[in-house]
Amino acid sequence: MLPLTFRGSAFMTDKSSDLVQGTLDMLILKTLALEPTHGWGIAVRIEQISRGVFRVNAGSLFVAFQRLQRAGLIKSEWKATENNRRAKYYTLTEQGRRKLNSETREWERQVAAIARILEAS
């Protein structure tokens, strides 16, 4: 699997950030496609589903939120949580949904291609 540690991304070099960035965005969009939720919810969901492979730190997460929101892929509103806290809930927009679909297809295409290359050797 790809080495995805997000800790210390402030000093992350430019080399892998494109890949990492795109991937994190896709994971967030996928999570929100299931249901709208707040930041912590997204972090937990990504961690759970990946069975602990990805642990997302706050910095990367919120930078991604900012980016996605400015790109119009997600939107946000303040709501009360089940524990009666106030939290910002993120929702996928229609544009975000389309983006997720195309990203997923592209991802699958790439993974399949890589798999073929690895099998060939």
């Binding site: 800790r7 402030a10 706050a58 910095g59 919120f62 930078v63 900012q66 980016r67 400015r70």
Partner: peptide, 17 residues
Amino acid sequence: LERGSLEGTKEVVRSAG
């Protein structure tokens, strides 16, 4: 340790835009 400090995160987010 796991998620980053409050101030550090703020700095990261602020410098992203």
